[in-house]
Protein backbone atom coordinates (compact mmCIF):
# COMPACT_ATOMS: atom_id res chain seq x y z
CA UNK A 1 0.00 0.00 0.00
CA UNK A 2 1.28 3.44 -0.89
CA UNK A 3 2.17 5.79 1.92
CA UNK A 4 0.13 8.39 0.06
CA UNK A 5 -3.57 8.85 0.64
CA UNK A 6 -5.90 7.83 -2.20
CA UNK A 7 -7.03 11.42 -2.60
CA UNK A 8 -5.72 14.68 -1.24
CA UNK A 9 -7.72 17.23 0.71
CA UNK A 10 -7.10 20.00 3.19
CA UNK A 11 -6.04 18.52 6.53
CA UNK A 12 -8.45 18.37 9.43
CA UNK A 13 -5.76 19.67 11.77
CA UNK A 14 -3.43 22.60 11.45
CA UNK A 15 0.29 21.92 11.25
CA UNK A 16 0.87 23.68 14.57
CA UNK A 17 -1.76 21.56 16.29
CA UNK A 18 -0.21 18.31 15.09
CA UNK A 19 3.22 19.62 16.09
CA UNK A 20 2.23 20.62 19.61
CA UNK A 21 0.59 17.23 20.18
CA UNK A 22 3.81 15.55 19.07
CA UNK A 23 5.91 17.86 21.24
CA UNK A 24 3.81 17.14 24.33
CA UNK A 25 3.97 13.40 23.63
CA UNK A 26 7.76 13.63 23.28
CA UNK A 27 8.10 15.69 26.47
CA UNK A 28 6.25 12.99 28.40
CA UNK A 29 9.03 10.52 27.65
CA UNK A 30 11.94 12.97 27.38
CA UNK A 31 12.41 15.11 30.47
CA UNK A 32 15.17 17.13 28.79
CA UNK A 33 12.91 18.65 26.16
CA UNK A 34 12.31 22.39 26.49
CA UNK A 35 10.21 24.87 24.54
CA UNK A 36 11.62 28.35 23.91
CA UNK A 37 9.60 31.10 22.29
CA UNK A 38 10.03 34.75 21.41
CA UNK A 39 6.48 36.02 21.77
CA UNK A 40 4.83 34.08 18.96
CA UNK A 41 3.84 30.99 20.90
CA UNK A 42 0.21 31.55 19.98
CA UNK A 43 1.12 31.77 16.32
CA UNK A 44 3.43 28.76 16.16
CA UNK A 45 1.12 26.68 18.30
CA UNK A 46 3.17 25.92 21.40
CA UNK A 47 0.60 27.46 23.76
CA UNK A 48 -0.74 24.14 25.01
CA UNK A 49 2.79 23.04 25.90
CA UNK A 50 2.93 25.85 28.46
CA UNK A 51 -0.13 24.45 30.14
CA UNK A 52 1.20 20.88 30.05
CA UNK A 53 4.78 21.64 31.15
CA UNK A 54 4.93 25.17 32.54
CA UNK A 55 8.40 24.68 34.02
CA UNK A 56 9.82 23.49 30.71
CA UNK A 57 8.58 26.34 28.54
CA UNK A 58 10.37 29.69 28.34
CA UNK A 59 8.86 32.65 26.56
CA UNK A 60 11.73 35.13 26.31
CA UNK A 61 9.72 37.98 24.84
CA UNK A 62 10.63 39.75 21.64
CA UNK A 63 14.35 39.04 21.74
CA UNK A 64 15.29 36.35 19.25
CA UNK A 65 19.06 36.77 19.67
CA UNK A 66 18.75 36.22 23.43
CA UNK A 67 16.36 33.31 22.87
CA UNK A 68 18.80 31.53 20.56
CA UNK A 69 21.84 32.15 22.76
CA UNK A 70 19.91 31.19 25.87
CA UNK A 71 18.73 28.00 24.13
CA UNK A 72 22.35 27.17 23.33
CA UNK A 73 23.20 27.66 27.00
CA UNK A 74 20.33 25.41 28.09
CA UNK A 75 21.62 22.71 25.77
CA UNK A 76 25.12 23.04 27.24
CA UNK A 77 23.62 21.75 30.49
CA UNK A 78 22.05 18.75 28.76
CA UNK A 79 18.59 20.10 27.95
CA UNK A 80 17.10 19.86 24.45
CA UNK A 81 15.51 23.20 23.55
CA UNK A 82 13.14 23.69 20.62
CA UNK A 83 13.15 27.38 19.67
CA UNK A 84 10.24 28.77 17.67
CA UNK A 85 9.81 31.93 15.65
CA UNK A 86 8.65 33.02 12.24
CA UNK A 87 11.17 31.74 9.71
CA UNK A 88 12.63 35.15 8.99
CA UNK A 89 13.32 35.81 12.67
CA UNK A 90 14.37 32.23 13.40
CA UNK A 91 17.17 32.38 10.84
CA UNK A 92 17.94 35.64 9.04
CA UNK A 93 17.71 37.81 12.14
CA UNK A 94 19.83 35.52 14.31
CA UNK A 95 22.22 34.05 11.78
CA UNK A 96 25.35 34.82 13.78
CA UNK A 97 23.79 33.46 16.98
CA UNK A 98 22.83 30.24 15.20
CA UNK A 99 26.29 30.06 13.72
CA UNK A 100 28.48 30.87 16.73
CA UNK A 101 26.39 30.33 19.84
CA UNK A 102 24.93 27.07 18.50
CA UNK A 103 26.63 25.27 15.62
CA UNK A 104 30.22 26.51 15.95
CA UNK A 105 30.41 25.14 19.49
CA UNK A 106 28.48 21.95 18.73
CA UNK A 107 25.48 22.68 20.92
CA UNK A 108 22.11 21.01 20.61
CA UNK A 109 19.37 23.39 19.54
CA UNK A 110 16.30 22.72 17.41
CA UNK A 111 14.92 25.64 15.43
CA UNK A 112 11.37 25.78 14.12
CA UNK A 113 10.80 28.48 11.50
CA UNK A 114 7.13 29.09 10.82
CA UNK A 115 5.61 30.53 7.68
CA UNK A 116 8.24 29.68 5.10
CA UNK A 117 8.03 31.43 1.74
CA UNK A 118 4.56 32.14 0.44
CA UNK A 119 2.88 30.49 3.43
CA UNK A 120 3.56 33.80 5.21
CA UNK A 121 0.79 35.05 2.90
CA UNK A 122 -0.84 38.18 4.29
CA UNK A 123 2.08 38.97 6.60
CA UNK A 124 3.86 39.90 3.39
CA UNK A 125 7.43 40.46 2.30
CA UNK A 126 8.88 41.34 5.71
CA UNK A 127 7.77 37.97 7.04
CA UNK A 128 8.39 35.82 3.95
CA UNK A 129 11.64 33.85 4.10
CA UNK A 130 12.88 32.77 0.69
CA UNK A 131 16.45 32.47 1.97
CA UNK A 132 16.24 30.51 5.24
CA UNK A 133 17.06 27.12 3.74
CA UNK A 134 20.12 28.56 2.04
CA UNK A 135 21.31 30.27 5.21
CA UNK A 136 20.88 27.14 7.30
CA UNK A 137 22.48 24.87 4.71
CA UNK A 138 25.59 27.05 4.80
CA UNK A 139 26.30 26.43 8.47
CA UNK A 140 28.48 23.32 8.89
CA UNK A 141 26.95 20.21 10.47
CA UNK A 142 23.36 21.44 10.48
CA UNK A 143 20.33 19.39 9.52
CA UNK A 144 17.68 21.13 7.42
CA UNK A 145 14.14 19.82 7.08
CA UNK A 146 10.90 20.91 5.42
CA UNK A 147 7.96 18.56 5.96
CA UNK A 148 5.17 18.28 3.43
CA UNK A 149 2.22 17.69 5.75
CA UNK A 150 1.15 17.25 9.35
CA UNK A 151 1.75 13.50 9.35
CA UNK A 152 5.38 14.07 8.51
CA UNK A 153 5.79 17.09 10.79
CA UNK A 154 4.51 15.23 13.83
CA UNK A 155 6.51 12.17 12.91
CA UNK A 156 9.92 13.87 12.86
CA UNK A 157 9.62 15.55 16.28
CA UNK A 158 10.83 12.48 18.13
CA UNK A 159 13.82 11.98 15.85
CA UNK A 160 14.69 15.68 16.05
CA UNK A 161 14.70 15.49 19.84
CA UNK A 162 16.87 12.38 19.77
CA UNK A 163 19.37 13.64 17.18
CA UNK A 164 22.20 15.76 18.58
CA UNK A 165 23.02 19.04 16.87
CA UNK A 166 21.50 22.08 15.25
CA UNK A 167 18.38 21.14 13.31
CA UNK A 168 16.31 23.67 11.38
CA UNK A 169 12.77 22.79 10.38
CA UNK A 170 10.61 25.22 8.40
CA UNK A 171 6.91 24.70 8.02
CA UNK A 172 3.55 26.28 7.51
CA UNK A 173 1.65 26.52 10.78
CA UNK A 174 -1.77 26.36 9.22
CA UNK A 175 -3.81 23.79 7.32
CA UNK A 176 -1.97 22.15 4.46
CA UNK A 177 -3.01 19.45 2.04
CA UNK A 178 -2.76 16.10 3.76
CA UNK A 179 -0.68 13.72 1.66
CA UNK A 180 0.45 10.85 3.86
CA UNK A 181 -1.51 8.16 5.62
CA UNK A 182 -1.58 8.38 9.40
CA UNK A 183 1.18 6.36 10.96
CA UNK A 184 3.59 6.73 8.04
CA UNK A 185 7.13 6.74 9.37
CA UNK A 186 9.75 9.12 8.05
CA UNK A 187 13.49 9.10 8.58
CA UNK A 188 15.51 12.32 8.63
CA UNK A 189 17.85 12.22 5.65
CA UNK A 190 15.89 9.52 3.83
CA UNK A 191 13.83 10.84 0.92
CA UNK A 192 10.31 9.56 0.21
CA UNK A 193 10.28 8.09 -3.29
CA UNK A 194 6.61 8.50 -4.06
CA UNK A 195 6.56 7.57 -7.75
CA UNK A 196 9.16 6.15 -10.07
CA UNK A 197 9.35 7.61 -13.58
CA UNK A 198 11.35 7.08 -16.71
CA UNK A 199 11.17 10.48 -18.42
CA UNK A 200 11.87 12.95 -15.61
CA UNK A 201 11.97 13.17 -11.82
CA UNK A 202 10.47 15.95 -9.76
CA UNK A 203 12.29 16.46 -6.46
CA UNK A 204 10.26 18.67 -4.14
CA UNK A 205 9.89 19.69 -0.52
CA UNK A 206 7.24 21.30 1.67
CA UNK A 207 4.12 22.60 -0.02
CA UNK A 208 5.69 21.91 -3.41
CA UNK A 209 5.35 18.15 -2.94
CA UNK A 210 1.60 18.45 -3.51
CA UNK A 211 2.27 20.59 -6.58
CA UNK A 212 4.71 17.95 -7.81
CA UNK A 213 2.08 15.24 -7.43
CA UNK A 214 -0.37 17.35 -9.42
CA UNK A 215 2.30 18.08 -12.02
CA UNK A 216 2.83 14.35 -12.40
CA UNK A 217 -0.82 14.00 -13.39
CA UNK A 218 -0.56 16.90 -15.85
CA UNK A 219 2.48 15.29 -17.46
CA UNK A 220 0.84 11.86 -17.49
CA UNK A 221 -2.00 13.32 -19.57
CA UNK A 222 0.64 14.29 -22.11
CA UNK A 223 2.19 10.86 -22.10
CA UNK A 224 5.14 11.81 -19.91
CA UNK A 225 6.18 9.48 -17.10
CA UNK A 226 7.39 11.61 -14.17
CA UNK A 227 8.78 10.28 -10.93
CA UNK A 228 8.23 12.22 -7.69
CA UNK A 229 10.52 12.42 -4.67
CA UNK A 230 9.66 14.19 -1.43
CA UNK A 231 13.07 15.49 -0.34
CA UNK A 232 11.98 16.55 3.14
CA UNK A 233 15.57 16.68 4.36
CA UNK A 234 17.69 19.11 2.36
CA UNK A 235 20.71 18.46 4.51
CA UNK A 236 22.04 15.88 4.73
CA UNK A 237 20.70 15.32 1.23
CA UNK A 238 19.68 11.80 0.30
CA UNK A 239 22.34 11.53 -2.39
CA UNK A 240 21.36 8.00 -3.35
CA UNK A 241 17.79 9.02 -4.11
CA UNK A 242 18.92 11.93 -6.29
CA UNK A 243 21.56 9.95 -8.16
CA UNK A 244 19.21 7.04 -8.72
CA UNK A 245 16.59 9.39 -10.15
CA UNK A 246 19.18 10.99 -12.42
CA UNK A 247 20.30 7.60 -13.69
CA UNK A 248 16.76 6.38 -14.28
CA UNK A 249 15.39 9.45 -16.07
CA UNK A 250 18.34 11.67 -16.98
CA UNK A 251 16.30 14.79 -16.22
CA UNK A 252 15.51 16.45 -12.89
CA UNK A 253 13.17 19.24 -11.86
CA UNK A 254 13.45 20.65 -8.36
CA UNK A 255 10.56 22.49 -6.72
CA UNK A 256 10.72 24.56 -3.57
CA UNK A 257 8.90 27.40 -1.86
CA UNK A 258 12.19 29.29 -1.54
CA UNK A 259 14.71 31.21 -3.55
CA UNK A 260 15.81 29.02 -6.45
CA UNK A 261 19.34 29.70 -5.23
CA UNK A 262 20.63 28.22 -2.00
CA UNK A 263 17.97 25.65 -1.22
CA UNK A 264 16.84 22.36 -2.69
CA UNK A 265 17.62 23.25 -6.30
CA UNK A 266 21.15 24.20 -5.35
CA UNK A 267 21.66 21.11 -3.20
CA UNK A 268 20.52 18.79 -5.99
CA UNK A 269 22.50 20.66 -8.65
CA UNK A 270 25.67 20.67 -6.56
CA UNK A 271 25.48 16.92 -6.19
CA UNK A 272 24.62 16.18 -9.80
CA UNK A 273 27.19 18.43 -11.41
CA UNK A 274 29.87 16.59 -9.46
CA UNK A 275 28.55 13.03 -9.59
CA UNK A 276 26.21 12.55 -12.51
CA UNK A 277 25.53 15.62 -14.69
CA UNK A 278 22.07 15.66 -16.23
CA UNK A 279 19.79 18.56 -17.18
CA UNK A 280 18.26 20.19 -14.10
CA UNK A 281 15.48 22.77 -14.06
CA UNK A 282 14.59 24.61 -10.88
CA UNK A 283 11.18 25.80 -9.78
CA UNK A 284 11.53 28.41 -7.07
CA UNK A 285 11.65 32.15 -6.54
CA UNK A 286 14.05 34.02 -8.80
CA UNK A 287 15.65 37.22 -7.52
CA UNK A 288 12.51 38.51 -5.81
CA UNK A 289 11.41 39.66 -2.39
CA UNK A 290 8.17 38.39 -0.96
CA UNK A 291 4.97 40.37 -1.02
CA UNK A 292 1.52 40.33 0.49
CA UNK A 293 -1.40 38.22 -0.72
CA UNK A 294 -3.16 34.92 -0.25
CA UNK A 295 -0.99 31.83 -0.53
CA UNK A 296 -2.80 30.88 -3.74
CA UNK A 297 -2.18 34.32 -5.24
CA UNK A 298 1.47 34.21 -4.24
CA UNK A 299 2.01 30.72 -5.61
CA UNK A 300 0.77 32.02 -8.98
CA UNK A 301 2.75 35.23 -8.60
CA UNK A 302 6.03 33.41 -8.01
CA UNK A 303 5.22 30.46 -10.29
CA UNK A 304 5.24 27.90 -7.49
CA UNK A 305 2.62 25.76 -9.22
CA UNK A 306 2.06 22.35 -10.74
CA UNK A 307 1.77 23.99 -14.15
CA UNK A 308 5.22 25.56 -13.79
CA UNK A 309 6.73 22.28 -12.66
CA UNK A 310 5.20 20.54 -15.69
CA UNK A 311 6.45 23.28 -18.01
CA UNK A 312 9.98 23.00 -16.68
CA UNK A 313 9.81 19.20 -16.80
CA UNK A 314 9.16 19.38 -20.52
CA UNK A 315 12.04 21.83 -21.01
CA UNK A 316 14.25 19.48 -19.06
CA UNK A 317 13.22 16.46 -21.15
CA UNK A 318 13.89 18.42 -24.32
CA UNK A 319 17.33 19.36 -23.03
CA UNK A 320 18.26 15.73 -22.52
CA UNK A 321 17.14 14.93 -26.04
CA UNK A 322 13.60 13.68 -25.56
CA UNK A 323 11.61 11.17 -23.54
CA UNK A 324 12.88 7.88 -22.18
Amino acid sequence: MSVLLDSFAPDTVEMRQAYCDALIAEAKVNDKLMVVDADVSHSVGTGRFYAAFPERAVNCGIMEAQAVGMSAGLSATGLVPFFHAFGVFATRRVFDQLFLSCAYQDLNVKIIGADPGVTAATNGGTHMPFEDLGLMRLIPHTTVIEPADSTMYASVVHEMAQTYGVIYLRTSRRVTTKLYRDGTQFKIGKAMRLYEGKDVYIIACGIMVYEALKARELLKAEGIDAGVIDMHTLKPLDNDAVLDAARRAGAIVTAENHNATGGLGSAVSELLCAEYPVPVERVGVFESFGEVGSQAFLQERFKLTAAEIARKAKICIERKGGKG
Binding site: Q66, G69, M70, S71, A76
Partner: peptide, 9 residues
Protein backbone atom coordinates in the same frame (compact mmCIF):
# COMPACT_ATOMS: atom_id res chain seq x y z
CA UNK B 1 22.84 34.97 26.53
CA UNK B 2 24.67 31.67 26.61
CA UNK B 3 25.49 32.21 30.28
CA UNK B 4 21.83 32.88 31.02
CA UNK B 5 20.88 29.58 29.41
CA UNK B 6 23.47 27.70 31.44
CA UNK B 7 22.23 29.38 34.62
CA UNK B 8 18.59 28.60 33.82
CA UNK B 9 19.47 25.05 32.79
Amino acid sequence: SLASGVALG
